[in-house]
Design a protein around this nucleic acid. Structure first.
Length: 256
DNA sequence: ATGGTCGGCAACCGA
């Protein structure tokens, strides 16, 4: 079972990249974030030949999530179970034996803002979502753009960037509380190296070339599922084509 | 070298 997560920064702008990536890697499940399209305009027709079924929830301009799967997608739910439910930020579904939760967590703008508090609250509401709907013993995978680099080795300049919205003590605490539900960072189970990033800011000149990045996209699994993980890696190849997303896919393989 | 991020969507917002 190969499952991947990719913040595409507009599914329409990234159509060829996503189609090629599916064809080449043949993941069982691909979770997307920042599709940036309302449901009526989702490019369904471009995926009918792909061999995948898919579910999605979006809005005009911002946010938006989708799940592609070879296997049947069951028990689909959108959004948190508290208000505001933020449907374009969370899809939950069951695929095979696995429960999949795909999240696009709020970025937080800046630490002294309402949006930052909203981000912190979002982690807390997500923890309640997990508590209400799952047990730590379930086969559950939580993936997506979390907008947090968990540790110093997960961003290019931890000393100078400490306190920014995606590398902030309050967000680290918020993430840890959710992890304490019973999640394992699958990437870190398989790789100790620093400099392994999934995001490079467009605004920083030659950020990718200089590897000035952040590890913001994650695959977390409950212990019984993490035990079955065989590999986890970041695929930087989609950064080498024309018009790349600012993020790149992360992939995990499970022996089920 | 006379530039200097993207995408959406139509003036700026969000990342």
């Amino acid at each position: 079972m190969k499952i991947a997560s990719f913040n595409v920064n507009s599914i329409r702008a990234r159509l060829p990249i996503v189609l090629n990536w599916l064809k080449k890697h043949q993941p069982d499940v691909l979770c997307l974030q920042e599709t940036k399209v309302q449901d009526a305009d989702f490019p369904k027709d471009d995926f009918v030949q792909s061999g995948y079924e898919f579910v999605f929830k979006g809005q005009k301009s911002y946010n938006g999530v989708a799940i592609f799967s070879k296997d049947k997608i069951r028990n689909v739910r959108y959004g948190l179970d508290s208000q505001p439910s933020d449907e374009p930020r969370l899809i939950c579904a069951k695929i095979g034996k696995i429960n999949v939760v795909n999240t696009y967590i709020p970025q937080g703008f800046e630490p002294q803002s309402d949006k930052f508090q909203y981000k912190l609250d979002w982690f807390e509401r997500l923890l309640n979502f997990f508590k209400n709907n799952f047990k730590p013993t379930d086969l559950l995978v939580w993936v997506g753009d979390f907008n947090i680099a968990p540790e110093p080795r997960d961003l290019y300049d931890p000393q100078n960037l400490l306190g920014s919205v995606c590398y902030h003590p309050d967000v680290q605490k918020a993430l840890k509380k959710v992890m304490d539900f019973g999640f394992v960072d699958v990437f870190r189970k398989h790789c100790d190296e620093s400099g392994q990033y999934t995001f490079w800011d467009y605004r920083l000149p030659n950020a990718f070339k200089r590897n000035l990045g952040w590890r913001l996209d994650h695959i977390m699994a409950t212990f019984p599922l993490a035990e079955k993980s065989a590999a986890c890696y970041i695929d930087k190849e989609p950064r080498s084509v024309e018009k790349p997303s600012d993020h790149t896919p992360i992939v995990a393989e499970f022996k089920l």
